[in-house]
């Protein structure tokens, strides 16, 4: 990415594992949250692995992790924040911009 005309890719999102997490979460409706085990199952990641990446995304303010109770059982709910959604949109726009010149002869 040395070409100054090309946009930089957000390093928080531009790592395969976190890109997958953010992509999946972006498909939820705004304000909807998904339970941790289901997200883990859908992404086919280990709990430890998913936790590590969620923490990095949380530190960046892209993801909100909420510990709560459903009846008596504790539940962890995950959602993409507004900021995370914007960052994801910017990331996708940047990807498209990077691909465009390559398609021209």
């Amino acid at each position: 990415m040395s070409d100054p005309a090309l946009p930089d890719l957000d390093p928080v999102i531009h790592a395969q594992a976190r890109l997958r997490v953010v992509s999946a979460l972006s498909q939820l409706h705004e304000d909807d949250r998904i339970v941790f085990p289901k997200l883990q199952e859908i992404l086919r990641m280990t709990p430890g692995n998913l936790s590590v990446h969620l923490r990095k995304l949380e530190d960046a303010g892209y993801v909100e992790v909420q510990k709560t109770h459903r009846g008596r059982t504790p539940a962890t709910l995950v959602r993409l924040t507004r900021r995370g959604r914007l960052a994801f949109d910017d990331y996708v726009t940047a990807l498209r911009a990077l691909l465009r010149p390559a398609k021209e002869p």
Partner: peptide
């Protein structure tokens, strides 16, 4: 299980495919 080498990046075309 997905690869645990998680800081690995992919090229833009592959990233778009992954997102979809």
């Amino acid at each position: 299980m997905a690869s645990t080498d998680d800081e690995s990046t992919v090229d833009p075309a592959e990233a778009l495919r992954l997102i979809e």
